[in-house]
Measured scan of single mutants.
Amino acid sequence: SASLEDVKTAVLGLLVILQTKLYTLPASHATRVYEMLVSHIQLHYKHSYTLPIASSIRLQAFDFLLLLRADSLHRLGLPNKDGVVRFSPYCVCDYMEPERGSEKKTSGPLSPPTGPPGPAPAGPAVRLGSVPYSLLFRVLLQCLKQESDWKVLKLVLGRLPESLRYKVLIFTSPCSVDQLCSALCSMLSGPKTLERLRGAPEGF
């Protein structure tokens, strides 16, 4: 439990870093931090981490990651405290083949985003970082199938509809809506759902 406290501190630090690096160059920093966060949550489900502190780590990670939004130009952003989304000039939600690297070039400044813009690109060529939603999407499927803490599952179920409104997140990387529907149906009809959940409301 003591070591998990250190892990929790590290994860919180990564969330803060991602919130900053999403809007700064090099964009590969945001890509790497995002991948680290998603990989860490995957390990929770792989090794069945069920301690309360592990659940709190997942809760905080999902609470942040499910706020990711994308505009029509595929640029990622996060809402501010007033709910207004600021889109990044440097990070996009497109999935890119590994051989192309985590970044790609664009020939010049991008068109203005639909929300308040981030800082304008400084040079004639900007390297865009790929932060594909499919990585998070796979972890969300694991959550629906394996999550043991009701608070975490409730958060994910509550945030998913709003995330799905931003269709560009889903359609720019390999996210299977069929698998999502299947996971939701299995969660509702499967007898093991109630068996594994802690803290579920009576009558769920």
Results as ranks from 00 to 15, higher is better:
residue 1 S to Y: 06
residue 4 L to A: 08
residue 4 L to R: 07
residue 4 L to P: 01
residue 4 L to C: 15
residue 5 E to I: 08
residue 5 E to A: 10
residue 6 D to S: 05
residue 7 V to D: 01
residue 9 T to E: 13
residue 9 T to F: 06
residue 10 A to E: 01
residue 10 A to Y: 00
residue 10 A to S: 06
residue 10 A to C: 06
residue 11 V to G: 04
residue 11 V to N: 03
residue 12 L to D: 15
residue 12 L to C: 15
residue 13 G to D: 01
residue 16 V to N: 15
residue 16 V to D: 15
residue 16 V to A: 15
residue 16 V to C: 15
residue 17 I to Q: 02
residue 17 I to Y: 01
residue 17 I to K: 01
residue 18 L to E: 02
residue 19 Q to S: 09
residue 19 Q to F: 04
residue 20 T to E: 10
residue 20 T to D: 08
residue 21 K to V: 02
residue 22 L to S: 03
residue 22 L to P: 01
residue 23 Y to I: 03
residue 24 T to P: 01
residue 25 L to F: 12
residue 26 P to I: 00
residue 26 P to S: 04
residue 26 P to M: 02
residue 27 A to W: 09
residue 27 A to Q: 08
residue 27 A to D: 05
residue 29 H to P: 02
residue 29 H to C: 06
residue 29 H to M: 07
residue 29 H to K: 02
residue 30 A to M: 05
residue 31 T to C: 15
residue 31 T to R: 13
residue 31 T to M: 15
residue 32 R to M: 06
residue 32 R to F: 02
residue 33 V to N: 00
residue 33 V to E: 00
residue 33 V to P: 04
residue 33 V to D: 00
residue 34 Y to L: 05
residue 36 M to N: 04
residue 36 M to C: 08
residue 37 L to W: 00
residue 38 V to Q: 02
residue 38 V to F: 03
residue 39 S to D: 14
residue 41 I to V: 08
residue 42 Q to P: 03
residue 43 L to S: 15
residue 43 L to I: 14
residue 44 H to P: 00
residue 44 H to K: 00
residue 44 H to Q: 04
residue 45 Y to I: 00
residue 45 Y to G: 00
residue 45 Y to E: 01
residue 47 H to A: 10
residue 48 S to I: 07
residue 48 S to C: 11
residue 49 Y to I: 03
residue 49 Y to S: 03
residue 51 L to E: 05
residue 51 L to C: 07
residue 51 L to H: 07
residue 52 P to C: 04
residue 53 I to K: 02
residue 53 I to D: 02
residue 53 I to M: 08
residue 54 A to S: 09
residue 55 S to D: 15
residue 55 S to V: 11
residue 55 S to F: 03
residue 56 S to N: 11
residue 57 I to F: 01
residue 57 I to V: 06
residue 58 R to V: 01
residue 58 R to W: 00
residue 67 L to D: 11
residue 67 L to A: 15
residue 68 L to Y: 03
residue 68 L to E: 02
residue 68 L to T: 05
residue 69 R to F: 02
residue 69 R to Y: 01
residue 70 A to K: 02
residue 70 A to H: 04
residue 72 S to M: 12
residue 72 S to Y: 13
residue 73 L to W: 13
residue 73 L to P: 03
residue 73 L to S: 10
residue 73 L to K: 13
residue 74 H to M: 05
residue 75 R to I: 01
residue 76 L to M: 12
residue 76 L to Q: 03
residue 77 G to L: 03
residue 77 G to N: 02
residue 79 P to W: 05
residue 79 P to S: 08
residue 79 P to H: 05
residue 80 N to V: 08
residue 80 N to S: 06
residue 81 K to A: 14
residue 82 D to S: 10
residue 83 G to I: 02
residue 83 G to F: 04
residue 84 V to N: 12
residue 84 V to L: 10
residue 84 V to A: 10
residue 84 V to K: 15
residue 84 V to M: 12
residue 85 V to R: 05
residue 85 V to M: 15
residue 86 R to Q: 09
residue 87 F to Y: 12
residue 88 S to K: 02
residue 89 P to H: 12
residue 89 P to W: 04
residue 90 Y to S: 08
residue 90 Y to T: 10
residue 91 C to I: 11
residue 91 C to D: 03
residue 91 C to E: 03
residue 91 C to R: 03
residue 92 V to M: 07
residue 92 V to H: 09
residue 93 C to T: 07
residue 95 Y to N: 09
residue 96 M to G: 10
residue 97 E to N: 10
residue 97 E to T: 15
residue 97 E to M: 13
residue 99 E to L: 09
residue 101 G to M: 11
residue 102 S to V: 13
residue 102 S to E: 14
residue 102 S to D: 14
residue 102 S to N: 11
residue 102 S to Q: 13
residue 102 S to C: 14
residue 103 E to T: 10
residue 104 K to V: 15
residue 105 K to F: 14
residue 106 T to Y: 13
residue 107 S to K: 12
residue 108 G to D: 10
residue 110 L to D: 12
residue 110 L to F: 12
residue 110 L to A: 15
residue 111 S to D: 13
residue 112 P to G: 14
residue 112 P to W: 07
residue 113 P to Y: 13
residue 114 T to C: 14
residue 114 T to P: 13
residue 114 T to M: 15
residue 115 G to P: 13
residue 116 P to G: 12
residue 116 P to L: 14
residue 117 P to E: 15
residue 117 P to M: 13
residue 118 G to A: 13
residue 119 P to L: 15
residue 125 A to V: 12
residue 127 R to F: 11
residue 128 L to P: 14
residue 128 L to E: 10
residue 129 G to Q: 10
residue 129 G to R: 07
residue 130 S to N: 15
residue 131 V to M: 15
residue 131 V to E: 03
residue 132 P to I: 02
residue 133 Y to K: 03
residue 134 S to P: 03
residue 134 S to T: 06
residue 135 L to C: 10
residue 135 L to A: 11
residue 135 L to K: 11
residue 136 L to T: 09
residue 136 L to N: 03
residue 137 F to W: 09
residue 137 F to P: 02
residue 137 F to V: 04
residue 138 R to L: 05
residue 138 R to G: 15
residue 139 V to A: 12
residue 140 L to Y: 05
residue 140 L to F: 06
residue 141 L to Q: 04
residue 141 L to K: 02
residue 142 Q to R: 08
residue 142 Q to M: 10
residue 142 Q to D: 12
residue 143 C to Y: 00
residue 143 C to D: 01
residue 144 L to Y: 00
residue 145 K to C: 13
residue 145 K to S: 13
residue 145 K to D: 15
residue 146 Q to W: 13
residue 146 Q to R: 12
residue 146 Q to V: 09
residue 147 E to F: 00
residue 148 S to P: 07
residue 149 D to V: 03
residue 150 W to M: 02
residue 150 W to D: 00
residue 151 K to P: 14
residue 152 V to I: 10
residue 152 V to C: 05
residue 153 L to T: 02
residue 154 K to E: 09
residue 154 K to N: 09
residue 154 K to P: 01
residue 155 L to V: 13
residue 155 L to I: 11
residue 156 V to R: 00
residue 158 G to R: 13
residue 159 R to Q: 06
residue 159 R to D: 01
residue 159 R to M: 07
residue 162 E to D: 10
residue 162 E to C: 07
residue 163 S to E: 05
residue 163 S to W: 05
residue 163 S to R: 07
residue 163 S to D: 01
residue 163 S to L: 15
residue 165 R to H: 08
residue 166 Y to L: 06
residue 166 Y to V: 06
residue 167 K to G: 04
residue 167 K to V: 02
residue 167 K to S: 06
residue 168 V to H: 08
residue 169 L to K: 04
residue 170 I to P: 05
residue 170 I to W: 11
residue 171 F to K: 12
residue 171 F to Y: 10
residue 172 T to Q: 06
residue 173 S to F: 02
residue 174 P to Q: 10
residue 174 P to L: 03
residue 176 S to Q: 06
residue 176 S to A: 10
residue 176 S to E: 08
residue 177 V to S: 03
residue 177 V to D: 00
residue 179 Q to M: 13
residue 179 Q to S: 09
residue 179 Q to G: 08
residue 180 L to F: 06
residue 180 L to A: 02
residue 181 C to L: 07
residue 181 C to P: 01
residue 182 S to D: 14
residue 183 A to V: 10
residue 183 A to L: 11
residue 183 A to E: 14
residue 184 L to C: 07
residue 184 L to A: 04
residue 184 L to Y: 00
residue 185 C to E: 03
residue 185 C to D: 02
residue 185 C to A: 06
residue 185 C to P: 01
residue 186 S to Q: 15
residue 186 S to P: 02
residue 186 S to D: 14
residue 187 M to R: 04
residue 187 M to N: 01
residue 187 M to L: 13
residue 189 S to F: 09
residue 189 S to P: 04
residue 190 G to F: 08
residue 191 P to R: 12
residue 192 K to A: 15
residue 192 K to G: 14
residue 193 T to A: 13
residue 193 T to L: 09
residue 193 T to K: 06
residue 195 E to S: 11
residue 195 E to D: 15
residue 195 E to Q: 12
residue 197 L to Y: 07
residue 198 R to G: 09
residue 200 A to F: 12
residue 201 P to S: 09
residue 202 E to W: 07
residue 202 E to Q: 13
residue 203 G to Q: 08
residue 203 G to H: 09
residue 203 G to K: 09
residue 204 F to E: 03
